[in-house]
Design a protein around this nucleic acid. Structure first.
Lengths: 353, 353
DNA sequence: CTGAAAGCGCTTACAG
DNA sequence: CTGAAAGCGCTTACAG
């Protein structure tokens, strides 16, 4: 804004010699207008350099043609790619995206939701920072703002649609691949180390971060293969490369080190990969390694990294579509879509020697 | 929206037993209100679940507290990182970001600008798709929407601020590094091959894409080193890995191949790196390679890639700050900031054997 | 097809 | 400090 006296519809109407109602109809493409009026109004608008005030329009129509997207970090390739999927499907439908970076902080997420709500977005796609905290999301739905959960579920939000990856299955495939190759001592590098105790008892799928779901999947996949899980082989790391490096090193230092390592995320994978290299371990002969997500570097390193490829872009596309559907379909039974990840075997995995 | 009868300020005022003016002042934090009124209004608002209608507020105040950001591709790590820089500095200042993906298409960019303008954003940060087309940006500035150019300039937009990288200097450093090591036949992989003829004559810095500026920088750096440029060593590629792979292969197939290769972008660098690997060339002994941008993979591959590191995150931060300054400073002489890139020498460069 | 009038939900002088 | 009234710039019944 800040523009000093931008021409309004009243100005255009006066210039065209019609009523504001007619001018509005001609410019907005609604209602009936004669060709003659339409032309005169169009001319007048062009002459004056008229731009519709979307604020005023939205206030009346009840639609802003804007969607909120809340993620923890846009610069993370995962979210950046999903975001691209979202905009690719919503922009052609006439929606713009209002982006908010929560930094993984629930309070920031709460504030962002409030802002989105005040700005009257038509719907929101959110990757909840903390699956256990869903009250603010439920509230949004209550006041009529459709919510689609992306990548992870949240508890206490029964009416939110969701689009997630079948992480349990994804990890099962990865572990299955290693078992088939003959591995029995399979380690895991995870950022859900803190949920370990929690996982042992509960079986709540709702309200778990992907990392925790993957860790649980790791245990059940081992069980399915008849392998007794050894918690010594769980390398807990924070979400950064250095920490993963240390966790991997720790496992490799074991008296009986694992012959294979599963990383539940690509940031962790890069740390583990580096740790293996620095130790002079030859992959896959001396160590098999599996990562998550098919990023460029995984094909550039030697050996190329075997990965579980998530359909990240598609995740965004599906979430966008689901939100659009919900926006014009109105409230109703929540829909939950689960996309399948795919194992891409490359040269970092082989039979143990 | 869509919410059926959300409570308005009138409802809150009635519930609190005050006028809408007082209710508005209490909730909006402007004007004078007695503590007593403030409390009653706050209670009433909480009871009713009142949410301010930002649309109505913005219409009056003339500010939406929203910034537009237009880039060609959010999923590109470069833009994703810059975007994070933008939100990190503008969100704390109370601004939200309206994101638009132009796909590098000027028409899409024009449409996006129009939408941003109708939505009355307080300002716009844009990485112009085509530096030669700036009319729509100039128009936005004319109607009072501050514009900050990101990463590249555009012609015909004299009043836009800009934050860019000093690409000329960045390339000069890279070439200088190679020359110092003793290289004389230095090839370049570029996506600005089409601008070659254009570059030979003109010297317009304005309105050139970074890739073209870098290519020009390559030529002038060679000249500075007293090396006669050999256009045979210019490998033109499209903006994808495969094309860069082919371009690099073409140069390496030359009767007199280059001993060093400069890639003006990291996507191109990954293609060239792969090409060198596939040819069995040992880096840096048989070929020196330099990339752009310091992405994770550059330290994961062996040898680690020597790169020109752009301050991408900072680019976003600076652009965000500049826009905020402009928004509360009002129009004035355009400011142009140029950030310096830095050469990070790793193991992919050495003296030619 | 057209227009006069009401109204969306706020904030802002203005007067008290 | 408080309130009645005007007004931001549109769209929407309603009547013609």
């Amino acid at each position: 804004m800040t523009e000093r006296g931008a021409p309004s519809l009243i100005d255009v109407a006066r210039e065209a010699g019609v009523s504001t109602a007619t001018a509005g109809r001609a410019l907005g493409g609604y209602g009936k207008v004669s060709q003659r009026s339409r032309d005169r109004v169009a001319d007048a608008a062009a002459r004056l350099g008229y731009r519709t005030n979307g604020l005023a329009r939205s206030m009346i129509t009840g639609s802003t043609q804007t969607l909120g997207v809340l993620v923890s970090d846009v610069s993370n390739p995962f979210f950046a790619t999903a975001l691209r999927g979202i905009t690719d499907v919503t922009q052609p439908a006439g929606f713009e995206v209002l982006l908010s970076n929560t930094g993984g902080d629930v309070d920031a997420e709460r504030r962002a939701m409030a802002v989105m709500s005040e700005k009257r977005v038509d719907g929101v796609i959110v990757a909840p920072a903390l699956p256990s905290e869903g009250a603010h999301l439920a509230r949004a739905i209550d006041v009529g703002v459709p919510v689609v959960l992306l990548d992870r579920l949240a508890s206490g939000v029964p009416n939110a649609d969701s689009v997630t990856i079948d992480n349990e299955h994804a990890v099962a495939e990865a572990v299955g691949h290693l078992v088939e190759l003959g591995h029995r001592r399979i380690g895991v590098i995870t950022e859900a180390g803190g949920d370990l105790a929690h996982l042992r008892k509960g079986n709540r799928k709702r309200g778990l971060l992907p990392s925790a779901v993957r860790l649980r999947g790791y245990f059940s996949a081992l069980a399915d293969a008849g392998i007794t899980a050894d918690e010594t082989l769980v390398g807990a790391a924070r979400y950064d490369r250095e920490s993963a490096y240390d966790a991997a090193t720790g496992l490799l230092d074991l008296a009986e080190p694992p012959t294979a390592l599963l990383c539940t995320d690509n940031v962790l994978a890069s740390g583990a990969y580096r740790a293996a290299q620095d130790r002079g371990l030859r992959m896959p002969r001396e160590l098999s390694l599996i990562g998550f997500d098919d990023e460029p570097w995984t094909t550039l390193v030697r050996p190329g990294l075997t990965v579980v490829e998530q359909p990240t872009y598609d995740l965004g596309v599906r979430a966008g579509k689901q939100l659009l559907d919900r926006i014009d379909g109105g409230p109703g039974r929540a829909r939950h879509a689960q996309l399948q990840a795919k194992l891409v075997a490359r040269d970092s995995t082989a039979s143990p020697r």
